[in-house]
Write a protein that binds this DNA or RNA. Structure first.
Lengths: 111, 111
DNA sequence: AGTCTACATGTAGGCTGTCTATATGTAGAT
DNA sequence: ATCTACATATAGACAGCCTACATGTAGACT
């Protein structure tokens, strides 16, 4: 998966993965991998800064916990984050429609 | 359309628009707008450098023409460009499948 | 003559988000 | 001791899309 392709879609992925339940960074990375059938291996250097950014702009909140002697920062969707996720989903649909319409133009135009 | 979302997909758009016939930069911008139903307004500062980049790596070739007193640089797909376009199309399908599977995970999981 | 719009190409520099590489530390298995 | 898995974090590189600007022709309108 070309890293550049992820640009601008990372937020949607992270918010989506947090929709059902709060998760900490490491678990988010695993969840992304699972849900994508192994196709998404997002490095920690991408995820942790992105989570902090999303918290800073108010889509996520976080709190520390210690489980099995290890420190975790658990992120949770805020109300604004939930609304943003809806926006991200419709933006995604529009995006795929628009790009798809250009990429498939040739297949349609046969004359 | 969020500019960042286009990242890494610009090449596919440009190659796709040139599949049927050679076009010059300005016409490419118009073609993108038409085919996307008006949703894609790609600025010249994006398109012209991108076309040069694609020519540099061998996916496009170009030649100058003068039409109605105006200079045009007409771009055409090379064989490598045509192969690349096929690759871009399958990468696009994989991309939408992967991201879509993550974004739609919640809708599926109802229990 | 001057102004406006459409046509047409191009570059410099900014912005920003993703990545690589590195650092730090716990826990448990060998 | 060493390895792997778990867990978080930052610095700096990289790259591509964008804004803003520069340049020029053609034709319409005033």
């Amino acid at each position: 998966m070309n890293p550049d392709a992820l640009r601008g879609h990372m937020d949607a992925l992270l918010l989506s993965v947090l929709e059902r339940e709060p998760l900490h960074g490491y678990a988010i990375i695993e969840a992304l991998q699972e849900r994508s059938g192994g196709a998404l291996s997002v490095p920690t250097g991408t995820v942790y800064p992105a989570l902090r950014r999303l918290e800073r702009i108010g889509y996520l909140s976080s709190e520390w916990a210690t489980v099995g002697g290890r420190r975790r920062r658990t992120y949770r969707l805020t109300d604004a984050g939930r609304r943003q996720l809806e926006g991200e989903r419709s933006a995604w649909r529009e995006f795929t429609t628009v790009i798809g319409s250009v990429l498939r133009a040739e297949a349609r135009a046969s004359g």
